[in-house]
Amino acid sequence: MDFWDILQYAAWIAAGLLVLWMVLDAIRVSKHFSEDVLTSSQEGIDELAVQQEQHRNGR
């Protein structure tokens, strides 16, 4: 087994671990947060503009 063989195995393993981490994290997030919260994103809402407006109004 030479350097390139080791590199190929390392790439398979690293890729598998990264995908596994993402899948497990996604499952954990889904368990801890409700679907309504996770899918609550709204188009056209500019949080920064709202914050700036509140800042200008002294709130």
């Binding site: 890729a15 598998g16 990264l18 993402m22």
Partner: peptide
């Protein structure tokens, strides 16, 4: 000087690393 290296693990790794 090392012919015959399989590209598939590197394809998979790049997609996984960039997706991460």
């Amino acid at each position: 000087g090392r012919p015959g290296v399989d590209p598939h693990p590197f394809v998979f790794f790049m997609v996984a690393a960039l997706a991460f």
